Amino acid sequence: MRESCWPALLFSDLPLLSEAKTRSISAENPKGEKGGGGKEASNLGVGRKGRPCITLPQAKTTSLAEIEGTGVIQHIWITLPDHTEEGPYVLRDLVLRMYWDGEPAPSVEVPLGDFFCNGHAMRCKVNSLPIAVNPTGGMNCYFPMPFRSSARITIENQHPKDVPGFFYQITYSLLPQLPEGTAYFHAQWRRENPTMIGRDYTIVDEIKGKGHYVGTYLAIGTLSRYWWGEGEIKFYIDGDEEYPTICGTGTEDYAGGAWCFGETYSTPFLGYPLCHRSEDGVPLHALYRWHIMDPVRFEKSLKVTIQQIGHDGRSLFERSDDVSSVAYWYQTEPHNVFPELLPAQARWPR
């Protein structure tokens, strides 16, 4: 039975009353104040959609949420234009960061689109349990994000121009306390372009502390012919060195598919939502795997890698591709500081 202070997060919890207090932050109520929403005026009058969105100034960091107290973020919804006249890469040019309990370094640092499984600065529909992206570009996250004293969410605009029409809603619960053993949400983005032949791509490493790994998003630009997805994922748990505790059997296998996919799909925990081919670029692919029913637990450390191995119809071969990723996990704090995020142009897709 969940504690009475914890909000309902599952269908089975819905009949159970809670001491949680629901609040929500948006452009219409930027501080999430009780009775503080919808006070701005439009041409229709006060309280008639007076301030539904904001503009993100170029080269500035905008605070989306500053919450004091104990609580848990339960839903984030964001939509915005995916391009301006200055370029098509808005979803990679904006950087989402989250900070818990006054920490100086973020626990989440990911280009906005990639956080919502829309890598390559390209929209696609996603129909999974923790992440859903609906037409046209409505991005939703349901990962619970607890905090004990404060939460801060920011968005940095590294696009060459102001980005108008940024809509957002962050819904959370204020709580008397968190259940004992509650860990903090983390997400980290990486890219290697191109990967090195024969060297596994690192999704995340240097995770120190106790926690569990809950998901992977991969955005891959394939740079050579033939099938690209024979690489095995590896989880090095609690000091594993040469060999991992968990080793997969293939990239499409890890995403719950088989035999080179053949078509796109998006399910609650597993997906291959993007296969994009064009005359002026390399083939682009994206896949996700949520470890919600099967979290990868660690007591002191974790490293996650994936191989770049292809198959030419006769045999396996080592290959080099453009790979970027998001790792999602929960752990105790403090966490190790993330590697420095690549500059905006180094994040742009091929």
Rank of each mutant, 00 (worst) to 15 (best):
L223R: 09
L56Y: 04
G138F: 02
G313E: 06
Q74T: 15
R48Q: 12
S107L: 02
Y272N: 11
N118E: 14
E206S: 08
N43E: 15
I76D: 05
L91Q: 04
F115N: 14
N336Y: 04
S173W: 02
K303S: 06
L44Y: 13
T202C: 06
G35L: 08
I207K: 01
T202R: 07
Y328T: 05
H186P: 04
R314K: 13
R191P: 13
N29S: 09
E86T: 00
L218V: 07
R190G: 10
K31H: 13
L91F: 15
P179Q: 03
L178A: 08
S325K: 12
E3D: 15
E19T: 15
I306C: 13
P7D: 06
L96I: 01
K21Q: 15
Y330C: 03
R152G: 09
T222F: 04
L91A: 07
G209M: 00
W290T: 12
P146T: 01
I131Y: 08
S42L: 03
L91E: 12
D240G: 03
T182H: 06
L56V: 09
P57Y: 01
E279T: 03
E206M: 00
F166M: 05
N336S: 08
D312M: 11
Q331V: 05
G87I: 01
H291Y: 04
H83W: 12
K210T: 12
G198K: 10
R350V: 07
R297I: 09
H159Q: 04
M1F: 03
R97K: 14
G165H: 02
P194V: 02
G198M: 11
E103M: 00
T55M: 01
S18I: 08
M98I: 06
R51K: 15
W348Q: 15
E333S: 11
Q177K: 13
F235E: 03
P179T: 12
Q188S: 14
V72R: 12
G87F: 01
D200R: 09
G181D: 10
T305D: 03
A59S: 15
G36A: 06
G45L: 05
Y184L: 02
D162H: 08
N43T: 11
E279I: 01
R277V: 04
W348G: 11
H159C: 03
R148N: 10
V163M: 11
I233C: 05
W348V: 08
I309L: 07
R190K: 13
H186N: 11
T154Y: 01
L14A: 13
R2W: 01
T70Q: 09
D253C: 00
L56P: 11
T84I: 08
S320C: 12
C247I: 06
W329V: 14
V282Y: 08
Q307R: 10
I25V: 14
Q307E: 15
E318F: 04
W329P: 13
K161H: 10
Y330N: 12
H212L: 02
V126Q: 14
G181V: 03
D114K: 05
Y272H: 09
N140P: 13
D82I: 08
A65T: 00
Y89I: 05
Y265G: 11
S266N: 04
L218K: 01
D101Y: 02
T267G: 10
W6R: 13
L223N: 11
L341G: 11
V326S: 07
E85Y: 04
L175A: 05
I25D: 07
H291C: 06
S173V: 09
R297G: 04
F166I: 06
